[in-house]
Design a protein around this nucleic acid. Structure first.
Lengths: 184, 184
DNA sequence: ACCTGAACACCGTTCAAGT
DNA sequence: ACCTGAACACCGTTCAAGT
């Protein structure tokens, strides 16, 4: 006989993300998530297979957070917007974001994000058989910077300085893409 | 009345690193470290203040692992050697290495590594007031790539492909430094 | 000075039992 | 179908006690 579910997977993931954002990754326990949902820890196991699955789901949330850039803007602007969106996501979720650099981007949300970059690089004139490699290097540089920034590696630097660093990083990547497109 | 110490801090850190290397970060418990040293977990607390301190110490070990590049080689070679040394360290310690991106590089070992890059950039002709920023971007790109590689983000790519990516990354950074040196 | 035994609060996870 | 109570193995950490 069915009982109406009081919690669901999305709710569990959202509660977990909120805890990590507010209190840090080590405060993200099954008990804390359960408390926030008004339920016992054991109830969570119907909705996530274990804590690793919970973490995977939370990281996946980050990828679906921002919509893709408008397709009509010039590719330079779209790439720049994408970079800023990544940086903003990192700032909103400093505890969870670093995990993005540590798992294979094989989910459909990850593929979607990657494809936005592919489209822009194609439009930039990068040769087809160089696009995947160029995307890896560009994305890795942006992610690496965002992780460093939100997890404290640049703790001693001002926001102003980090903004300047980020602009310079974007300049470096633009130059790189430009060179790639000439190799064609 | 003194009793000869059976373990010391360096031994504790080394044992911890070995466990993380062999069995992964989640196997790195106070109990596992103690077992490896033939001692009870409580004995560790005389040599590390707590588990966070143990982790900090282990990460610090990574920085002192490889000696600086020979100072007489041309700066391009020194920078390239440094990049390869970082990548090698990442491969030797895939579980612990990602933490490097997540803490402020304020220890003396970190300062030493950073200074090697400063020297090379100065020799490359980068203007003094641009050197620190250039170092941050170059180091972050290398670290970000190395972390991605060893923690599974590029799981689906062959070693051959990743070697090619790394070469391309170094090319991008060389071009960047070249541009910086022209701005002078 | 250095290590241990006992003890505590907490954590992830299971399983049978309740509704 | 969904949640809970009881239970288990494990974890980090403390403190007083042993040598």
């Amino acid at each position: 006989m069915g009982r109406p579910a009081r919690i669901d997977r999305d709710g569990v993931l959202a509660a977990g993300l909120a805890i990590a954002d507010d209190l840090g990754l080590e405060a993200l326990t099954m008990g804390a998530v359960a408390d926030r949902l008004g339920v016992t820890p054991m109830a969570l196991y119907r909705h996530v297979v274990n804590k690793a699955d919970l973490l995977d789901g939370i990281v996946e949330l980050l990828l679906t957070e921002h919509p893709g850039a408008p397709a009509d803007a010039p590719w330079e602007d779209r790439l720049s917007q994408l970079a800023h969106a990544i940086r903003d996501t990192a700032r909103r979720h400093p505890s969870v974001f670093p995990l993005l650099l540590q798992r294979p981007a094989t989910t459909s949300a990850a593929r979607g994000a990657r494809n936005s970059v592919y489209l822009a690089l194609r439009e930039a004139g990068v040769n087809e058989d160089r696009i995947a490699q160029t995307e890896r290097l560009v994305s890795t540089a942006i992610l690496g910077f965002a992780v460093s920034e939100v997890s404290g590696r640049f703790r001693d630097h001002s926001r102003r300085q980090l903004d300047a660093d980020f602009r310079r990083l974007q300049g470096m990547l633009a130059q790189f893409i430009d060179t790639e497109s000439r190799i064609g």
